[in-house]
Each structure stands twice: as structure tokens, then as C-alpha cells.
Write a protein that binds this DNA or RNA. Structure first.
Length: 585
DNA sequence: ATAGGGTTAG
């Protein structure tokens, strides 16, 4: 039961525990920099409040100090403005993503001003807590809400469901949605939207589409947001054509794609090399009156950068300078990463310096890209130097930075140093994730340190991490390379029981293991077996098997499998070709 | 009258 999970901390204690902003940051400034002079308006209460409301609603309010000035002015009014006005202002502070400040202001409303928060105010607090990854505190506010006798609304639950999704707790999110319905609330389009987004984010797009249909059966009309969410999920899952189909379906229902829809689809198309279609879509959106914004253009820049098409990226940047307020930190970071991936560290460094000179501060992503670049060309000293520099600049390396550096040490043949970093990163507040584990295990295996890898693997298995097939494949590959075929086969056989879906990479690793040991019947059995299990061998699978056959000079089977490969449209790779060329009967 | 959903970089 979900409600059992609600810790009943009081709101007061909760807010007391929250970080608060320093008083100086919301002191009344002697002059107001907005178009309207609030000091003057202050004499006229109604004018002032109306002006505040207009500023909030028109979106003209886009500066946190302005918002804090307004709050301060409101707080010193007598009598105090209503909770409604305060909450309106809070909403805008939230829109500016100043969650900690918003929570601190709710606290002030309550403790210093003696204003009783209502459901709306508490929903703002819950939303902020969820954004700060403090969902448990969000639930305690829900508890408080019950205690104070306020009815939570669908908004309250939807906010919490979103928090659970972001935290990666999909099962609990669905449970809360069910529970909410049992309490007599009805999920609305936004509730479904949040759940659908959660499903997409964990790559479960087919279920997301299922929920879309379920929602339609219950007579909720999906809107452009729900459709765009799923389209983005499909694109990120590589199902770009399905996303385009869904866009068509949406259009037939009379819902027009908007800027976000186009951005998602263009990214999907670019990402899979469908440049021409991306271009037509860009054309279509502009012809129908939707101009690409900075974010859309950044998507294009990044896609070109990833393909190494720097010239095209630069021409998009040219367009961006004319039509949008760019380039921004995303644009520069895409360029930096592109140069790093092409081992052009001088160019990458130049862009890094350029962004500094243009008052666009490099962030943790910029630093991590450069660190990755230096690691890639095996200059671990430069990488370490940048790591230091970034810490000096006030950035806390996150799990991606650590993983990059750990990979760097593996790259230069120092897997034990990498392991030290892996074991010590938690002292700096960072917990390894599944990618970190994959990098270090692979590094140890490739460095011929299988027993080191296995003992670490055992420790990782005992942790809370949900190990995936990639991790097991790395270990299997390590075992096979070290000639421990029996151990590998034993582990391989356990995978289904662990609920893991064996994929083409895993099968290929085992087939390669058998082939390299000359156990060609075992390899062939597995090749047939995988196909029967619905996992299609790819070009690599056939190549490693044929290489085994070539070594053993199994002429009949060599011909059989090379023919099979040709029929399936696969070709011999460099190694296979060389073996064929040098084949002596 | 005030609150909740979708898109960009390592």
C-alpha cells in the first residue's frame, strides 16, 4: 500500500530541514529595474498587485532577483496579499527552476508571515521537492496535507507520480496511480502523460503506446504533448518510422505537430542518418509557421557534429546567430565533443577557450568531453590536469566524469589504477552506475586480470545495481578470452534464470569462445540454437564462426557458411578475408 | 483567482 510509505513528518520540520537561501539574496533593492516602478505602485495596493499578476502571467518576469523583490514587497504589505497572490509568484519562481528558493519562500510564508498554505501552495512545495529528487519529502507533504484537512487533488498525485518516474521507480508510480483511482480520483490526460513519459524514459515504448490506447478507450483524448512524448520515446528507441506513423495518426485526428514534436522527429531522423527527411521536416515546419528555436537548431548542430560534419554544423550556427539567441553552452559542447571524438584536441581546446571569451561558462559537460578526448588519445596526464582544473573551477565531478577517467586509465593499460578510482569515487560523493561497472570490468578483463574482474564482479552483484546483459557479456568475454570456457558456459546457462534477455552480442561472444578453442560443434549448435530462440545471428556472428572453421580447415563447412553469409547479405570482415586469402589446403 | 505533463550536450 502506497500510503504506508508516507512518512508523516510535519511540514514545519520538513521545511526547517530544507536548505534556505541567504537573507541578502532577497533584500529589497533600492531601485526596481523592471519597466514598472514597484515602489511607486506600492502606494496603490491594487495597482501593485495587478502589476505583479501581469508580470507573472505575461512571462515578463524572468529574473530571480525581480521575483524576490516582489516577494519581499508583498511580505511587507499590510494587510498581506492573499495566499493566491503569493502562490502565483511562487509558480513563476518554479518556472525559473529555482526550486530551493521556492521551498524556502513557502517556509517563510508560513513561519514569518503566518499565512496558511492551501492545497495549491503545498502542491508547489511537492513539485519543488520532486524536482530536487526528494520525493520522500514530497510524500511527507502529502501526509501533512491530510493532517491539515486539505484534500489532495489529481495535481498533487500527478506531481508525485512524476517524481517517482524521474527517480526511476516506475512500478511505484503505477501503483500510486492505481491507488489514486481507488481513492476516487480519476487520472486525467496529464496523469497519463506522466506515466507514458516514464515508460518511454526506461525504453518501454510499446507499453507507452499501450497506455495511449488505454487512455483513448477511457475517452480521454490524447493531445500533442502525449503524442510528442511517445514520438520522442520511439525515436530514441530507434523506431523513427513508427514515430512518423504516429505523427500522421495525430495529424489525421486533427492535432497539429508543434515545435517540440518537430524537434523530437528531426532529432530522430538525424540520429539515424535520415538527413533528407530531416531537411524536409524542417522545411515543412517553417512553411507551416513554426520557426525552429535554439533547441531545435542545437539538435541539428549536435547531429552534424556526431557525424563529423563540422562545416554543416557551423552553417547551422550561422543561422542560429541570425534567428535565435545562440550559440549557447549546448552548441559549444557539441562542437567540443565533436573535435574530441576526432582526436583534434587543439581545436577542442580552442572552442573551449572561445566559449569562455564569449562569456558562456564551460560546465561539467564541457570539461568531461575534454577529459574524454585526452583519454582517447591516451594522454592521461592532460586528462588528470583538466580534472583538477575543473575541481578548482568549482565543479564537482559527477559519475560520468569519474567513469570517463576510469575508462582513461584502462585505455592506457592501467586497470589497477582505474580500479582504485572506482573503489574511491564514493569518497567524493559519487556512486558508480552500470556504465562505470561495465568500463572497469571490461578494463580488468582486457588487461588480463580476470580474477580481479571476477572478484569485483562478485562485489557488484551483491550491490543494489540491477545488472544487465551488457555486464554479463563483458564477464563472459573475459572468461572466454582467458580460456575459461567451462566457467563461461556455466554462467551463460544461468542467464535466463536471472531474467536476462540474451542478445546477439552475448551469443557471438560464446560462439567466438568455442570457435577460438576449436570446439566447432558447440559453436554451431549455439548458432542454430540462437536462431531458434528468435535471436538472429549477424555478420559478426558468422565471421567469428567461419574464422574458427578456417583455422581448423573445415573446408565443407567453410563453403556452407560462406554461402549462407552471402545469401543473407553479410560479407567477410578483414580478418576472415585475410584468412581466406592465406588459406592453404 | 494560485498548483501537475513532452524536446538539446559529456
Amino acid at each position: 500500500m502506497i500510503l504506508r510509505r508516507i512518512v508523516s513528518l510535519s511540514l514545519f520540520r520538513l521545511l526547517h530541514d530544507m536548505p534556505s537561501i541567504s537573507p541578502s539574496s532577497y533584500q529589497l533593492h533600492s531601485h526596481c529595474t523592471t519597466a514598472t516602478n514597484f515602489d511607486e505602485c506600492r502606494s496603490n495596493r491594487t495597482n501593485f498587485l495587478n502589476s505583479m499578476r501581469n508580470h507573472c502571467r505575461s512571462g515578463e518576469l524572468n529574473n530571480i532577483n525581480q521575483a524576490l523583490n516582489l516577494f519581499h514587497l508583498m511580505a511587507t504589505m499590510s494587510p498581506l496579499p492573499s495566499v493566491v497572490d503569493f502562490t502565483l509568484l511562487l509558480g513563476f519562481i518554479v518556472r525559473m527552476k529555482h526550486y530551493t528558493i521556492a521551498i524556502s519562500l513557502v517556509k517563510q510564508m508560513h513561519s514569518s508571515l503566518g499565512l496558511k498554505p492551501d492545497t495549491f501552495t503545498l502542491n508547489v512545495a511537492i513539485n519543488c521537492l520532486c524536482h530536487l529528487n526528494l520525493v520522500a519529502f514530497g510524500f511527507s507533504v502529502l501526509g501533512t496535507m491530510f493532517k491539515l484537512g486539505f484534500e489532495p487533488s489529481v495535481v498533487t498525485f500527478t506531481t508525485l507520480i512524476k517524481g517517482l518516474c524521474v527517480q526511476g521507480d516506475m512500478a511505484l508510480a503505477v501503483e500510486l496511480a492505481d491507488h489514486m483511482e481507488k481513492l476516487g480520483y480519476r487520472s486525467d490526460v496529464q496523469t497519463y502523460g506522466v506515466l507514458i513519459n516514464g515508460l518511454c524514459k526506461i525504453g518501454n515504448t510499446s507499453e507507452a503506446v499501450g497506455w495511449l490506447r488505454k487512455m483513448e478507450e477511457r475517452n480521454w483524448k490524447a493531445n500533442v504533448v502525449v503524442y510528442s512524448t511517445i514520438m520522442d520515446g520511439l525515436c530514441k528507441d530507434g523506431l523513427v518510422s513508427e514515430a512518423l506513423d504516429l505523427c500522421l495518426e495525430m495529424s489525421i485526428k486533427g492535432i497539429r505537430p508543434n515545435l517540440v514534436t518537430y524537434t523530437c522527429l528531426i532529432q530522430g531522423l538525424c540520429c539515424f542518418g535520415r538527413w533528407k527527411e530531416a531537411g524536409s521536416l524542417l522545411d515543412e515546419m517553417m512553411k507551416t509557421g513554426t520557426m525552429p528555436d535554439l533547441q531545435t537548431l542545437n539538435v541539428l548542430v549536435d547531429a552534424f557534429c556526431k557525424e563529423g560534419k563540422i562545416m554543416q554544423a557551423k552553417s547551422v550556427i550561422g543561422f542560429m546567430i541570425l534567428t535565435a539567441e545562440g550559440p549557447d553552452v549546448f552548441t559549444y559542447n557539441s562542437l567540443i565533443d565533436s573535435y574530441c571524438l576526432q582526436n583534434q584536441m587543439n581545436e577542442a581546446t580552442r572552442v573551449f577557450e572561445l566559449m569562455v571569451s564569449r562569456d558562456c561558462l564551460p560546465d561539467i559537460v564541457a570539461y568531461t568531453s575534454l577529459i574524454h578526448g585526452w583519454c582517447k588519445i591516451k594522454n592521461i596526464n592532460k586528462a588528470m590536469h583538466l580534472f583538477d582544473e575543473m575541481v578548482k573551477a568549482g565543479f564537482t565531478p559527477d559519475v560520468v566524469t569519474w567513469t570517463t577517467l576510469i575508462g582513461g586509465f584502462c585505455q592506457v593499460g592501467r586497470p589497477l589504477a582505474a580500479k582504485e578510482l572506482f573503489l574511491n569515487m564514493h569518497k567524493y560523493g559519487q556512486v558508480p552506475n552500470i556504465q562505470t561497472c561495465a568500463i572497469i570490468l571490461d578494463g580488468l578483463c582486457k588487461g588480463q586480470l580476470l580474477s580481479e574482474a571476477l572478484s569485483l564482479f562478485e562485489a557488484i552483484e551483491k550491490s543494489n545495481l540491477d545488472l544487465n546483459i551488457v555486464i554479463y557479456s563483458i564477464i563472459l568475454n573475459g572468461m572466454c578470452s582467458a580460456g575459461k570456457l567451462n566457467a563461461a558456459w556455466e554462467l551463460f546457462s544461468c542467464l535466463p534464470a536471472k531474467g536476462l534477455q540474451i542478445n546477439v552480442y552475448t551469443y557471438t561472444i560464446m560462439i567466438n569462445g568455442f570457435s577460438k578453442q576449436g570446439l566447432l560443434d558447440n559453436a554451431e549448435d549455439l548458432l542454430i540454437n540462437m536462431e531458434e530462440n528468435g535471436c538472429m545471428p549477424d555478420s559478426c556472428t558468422y565471421n567469428v564462426f567461419v574464422q574458427g572453421l578456417l583455422t581448423k580447415k573445415e573446408t565443407a563447412r567453410i563453403i556452407k557458411y560462406l554461402t549462407m553469409m552471402r545469401d543473407k547479405g553479410f560479407s567477410a570482415d578483414a580478418t576472415t578475408t585475410e584468412m581466406i586469402v592465406n588459406y592453404k589446403v
